[in-house]
């Protein structure tokens, strides 16, 4: 069920990016898509009642030096979180560029409406 809602969020973003005529709304749609993907990645690694994947002294067996089975069973997967951090940084970079291009286009054309920004065709 959470996955379905996440997919719905992705689709809302895609719809917004494809259908809307205002450039800023298109940018918002793209960002909604990217956040939906980030949310999906986080959910992949999540466990109900899970603990943070940080090893404390009590999680290690003092005699054998091995990690307790309970920690392995309960901790969430840290890898998707690392991926999401990377992808947030990437989407921040592309968001900054997108918005700055929007601003430059507004300076040139005086409008955010993409139906009026049509010098290229063919």
């Amino acid at each position: 069920m959470p996955y379905a809602i996440c997919f719905l969020l992705f689709m809302v973003g895609l719809y917004c990016a494809v259908v809307k005529k205002n450039m800023v709304k298109i940018v918002i749609g793209i960002m909604v898509m990217e956040y939906a993907v980030n949310l999906f990645l986080i959910m992949l690694g999540y466990r109900f009642g899970g603990v943070a994947p940080i090893l404390s002294r009590s999680d290690v067996n003092n005699e054998t030096g091995q990690i307790m089975q309970s920690f392995i069973d309960n901790s969430v997967d840290p890898l998707p979180q690392a991926l999401v951090l990377t992808s947030i940084v990437i989407s921040l970079g592309s968001l900054a560029l997108l918005i700055s291009i929007c601003v430059r286009i507004y300076e040139k054309y005086g409008t955010f409406d993409i139906t009026e920004i049509r010098r290229l065709k063919g």
Binding site: G13, V37, I101
Partner: peptide
């Protein structure tokens, strides 16, 4: 802008 919108959708 056009390239970037489609490119970002592709990346997503």
């Amino acid at each position: 802008f056009k390239y970037m919108v489609l490119g970002s959708i592709a990346s997503a």
